[in-house]
């Protein structure tokens, strides 16, 4: 596999404000890569740096093997982009918008028909001016323009914003189809279940810094489990603190966060106490996210 994109020490500062610092990342071709972080974490800045819309303060970025940046004009023929704050020309019809952007890309819109069908944008809607569109329809049009020319790499910044649950389902099918066509998808979001559902790997940003990166399962495995033990009588939680972090105790109930490696020893120790019930929750990506951002 070759790298669809690679960054080394990529950073962006606006005066004293650091929007992104020392980002080193590698995304392989054909991956659906989730880019997570709360608002202001640097997700959009990263995408804009990779597209050459911003100039990096430090570091380098390679997109499809070529240097990103304002000079990387040709590589953008192979790239699709859905901006986080999508703005379209209000006086253009949907069809004219798609035709214009496909012509500017210089590649035939091979997948337009399929995308329109999946996302439910019909001929009538395409014939209307964009100013009459709802937010959801604009977002659908944005997704179609980003993927219609079957790009090798698609940057989708908060793609499900404004979509209703049914269209979100259709969007997940669109992503699966794009992956099947060999498109690498770089997917920025803070909707964790959808990232968990569609992404192969994820990276998490916090305050402009990368905090974790890996396969979704790996990232989850690295996360501490939430263990809930109920005893028949109150116990001293301090004797369990050795195995992890006691996050709550209410009489005979104790809740702990425990690393996977400590689980067996904890279960053995709990077995020596008057146990009534034991629950070990597998961590969701949301748990990982919350732990990193608390």
């Amino acid at each position: 596999m070759t790298a669809a994109l690679e960054t080394r020490g990529l950073g962006k500062a606006y005066g004293r404000v650091r929007a992104l610092a020392d980002l080193s990342l590698l995304v392989e071709e054909g991956e659906v890569f989730g880019f997570l972080g709360p608002n202001g974490a640097g997700k959009t800045t990263t995408i804009r740096l990779l597209l050459g819309l911003l100039r990096p303060t430090t570091g380098v970025a390679l997109v499809l093997g070529r240097p990103a940046g304002a000079a990387g004009t040709e590589l953008r023929r192979d790239v699709g982009y859905l901006p986080g704050e999508l703005a379209l020309w209000p006086a253009f019809t949907g069809r004219r918008t798609l035709d214009f952007l496909a012509a500017l890309t210089g590649r035939p819109p091979l997948d337009r028909g399929l995308l329109l069908e999946r996302l439910g944008l019909n001929d009538d809607a395409l014939g209307r001016k964009v100013r009459t569109y709802s937010d959801g329809m604009k977002q659908k049009l944005g997704i179609v323009q980003a993927l219609q020319c079957r790009p090798r790499l698609a940057f989708l910044d908060e793609p499900t914003k404004g979509l209703d649950p049914l269209v979100q389902q259709a969007f997940y099918e669109v992503i699966a189809a794009a992956r099947a066509n060999g498109t690498t998808v770089f997917f920025s979001s803070h909707v964790l279940p959808e990232v968990e559902r569609v992404c192969d790997r994820v990276a998490m940003l916090r305050a402009g810094r990368l905090v974790t990166v890996g396969a979704v399962d790996e990232v989850r495995r690295a996360q501490r489990r939430r263990v809930h033990a109920r005893f028949t009588q109150p116990v001293d939680a301090a004797q369990l603190a050795h195995f992890g972090e006691v996050v709550a105790q209410d009489g005979a109930e104790v809740e702990l966060l425990v690393a996977q490696a400590e689980l067996a020893a904890l279960v053995a120790r709990i077995g020596m106490l008057p146990l009534a019930d034991l629950t070990i929750e597998p961590p969701s990506l949301e748990d990982v996210f919350l732990e990193h951002y608390r």
């Binding site: 819309l53 790239v79 379209l88 020309w89 890309t105």
Partner: peptide, 15 residues
């Protein structure tokens, strides 16, 4: 200002 430059400048068009 309108935000549409993102769609133009992310295409294979030099500045």
């Amino acid at each position: 200002g309108e935000g549409t430059m993102d769609l133009l400048a992310s295409r294979p068009v030099s500045r």
